[in-house]
């Protein structure tokens, strides 16, 4: 195909490059995750990739779309990254397979494929899993520092595919996430500062493993900001709102509301800040709109974490704000040059 109309030059960026860059940025978090939680995530990742390739090929074929260009745009990888980090590393194999299948079919292709999905596919898949398999989704592998066991690759493999393991007692290596732990403790009358003294937290009163993974995500996210794979409004708006909210409530009542560092370094907060809410397709597109969108998600996450039924609320917060995108876009259009200020 020959270009018929100007411009005849391009900065050589492409969707593929953007997506690969996001993958690259997720690597530090992946290695940290392996270090603290074992090799489970690599098996989940491989499973997710295979599922993605199969489901996407079938869907593209059904939709009569060219398979090769759409399969190699690597947009599905983002969905995989978003979902794999959200499920327990030793969850049964069918959890990730059904999650990815649901995300790709219902989150992406039924709406028209890349660029047309109103909801974040990864979060749609996660919400589906959380509602369908609540037990499997909350049995998190404990970090080595907490459980004292280190699962080998073979152990993880067995656990994922057979659901049992002989070398170590299952109930010793899995447990609630720090977020869950604190929330449950609160409901039984234990204050937050007391919960923070438990075994799950290190000397800085931040959770083992989780904090490191979150920091790794932060580093990868900074790389994405510099390489312009994501826009600064998302993480800045999200983290700023989160910090302000948690600081305010913590100052108001430190017994009930966890400190800022706890909120920032537990759960999938940094994953959300840099990898989930930055999905451009399902988020607002105006500069102001992105900021509002990100802040809205932060508010909802904080509300769900503190007063909701689930320990972590990122998926629902993202999905709810996805619905607000058209109206945010409508009312945040920037001033065009030459028009009144």
């Amino acid at each position: 195909m020959i270009q018929v109309s100007s411009p005849f030059t391009h900065n050589n960026n492409s969707v593929r490059k953007v997506m690969l860059n996001v993958q690259l940025a997720a690597l530090p978090a992946l290695f940290t995750h392996i270090y603290f939680f074992g090799f489970g995530i690599t098996i989940q990742w491989t499973l997710a990739l295979i599922t993605l390739l199969v489901v996407e090929t079938i869907m593209l074929k059904l939709r009569n779309r060219p398979i090769w260009p759409y399969l190699t745009d690597f947009s599905g990888l983002i969905t995989v990254t978003g979902l794999v980090f959200c499920i327990p590393p030793e969850a049964p194999w069918w959890v990730i397979v059904s999650g990815i299948t649901f995300a790709i079919i219902f989150g992406k292709h039924l709406y028209g494929g890349l660029g047309y999905n109103p909801f974040n596919p990864a979060m749609l898949g996660f919400a589906f899993l959380l509602i369908s398999f609540p037990y499997e989704m909350t049995q998190w592998t404990l970090p080595t520092q907490v459980s004292g066991y280190y699962l080998s690759f073979i152990d993880s493999f067995y656990l994922i595919f057979s659901g049992q393991i002989h070398s170590v007692p299952l109930d010793q290596i899995t447990g609630a996430t720090p977020l869950d732990e604190v929330k449950t403790a609160l409901s039984t009358g234990v204050t937050v500062p007391t919960s923070l003294m438990s075994d799950s937290f290190n000397a800085f009163r931040i959770p083992y493993g989780w904090a490191a993974v979150n920091i790794a995500f932060f580093i990868g996210g900074t790389w994405m900001l510099i390489s312009r794979s994501i826009r600064w409004q998302y993480p800045v708006g999200f983290l700023l709102t989160m910090i302000i909210l948690s600081a305010a409530f913590n100052w108001f009542d430190p017994e009930t509301y966890a400190p800022v560092r706890f909120h920032l370094l537990t759960g999938g907060l940094m994953l959300a800040a840099f990898f989930i809410i930055t999905d451009p397709v399902s988020s607002s597109t105006t500069p102001m709109g992105r900021f509002i969108y990100a802040s809205g998600i932060a508010v909802l996450v904080y509300i769900i974490r503190n007063w909701g039924a689930f320990p972590e609320g990122i998926a629902f917060a993202v999905l709810i704000m996805n619905m607000f995108v058209p109206i945010i876009d409508q009312y945040t259009q920037p001033r065009v040059v030459g028009y009144r200020k």
């Binding site: 960026n13 492409s14 969707v15 953007v18 260009p69 745009d73 947009s75 494929g113 890349l114 660029g115 047309y116 312009r228 826009r231 451009p280 397709v281 988020s283 597109t285 105006t286 500069p287 992105r290 259009q333 920037p334 001033r335 065009v336 040059v337 030459g338």
Partner: peptide, 19 residues
């Protein structure tokens, strides 16, 4: 040509500040 992923690069590059 791939579908638009609404990344907003175009908006950041527009000298007239259009969308």
């Amino acid at each position: 040509v791939m579908p638009c992923i609404r990344c907003g690069e175009c908006m950041d590059a527009c000298p007239i500040n259009l969308l």
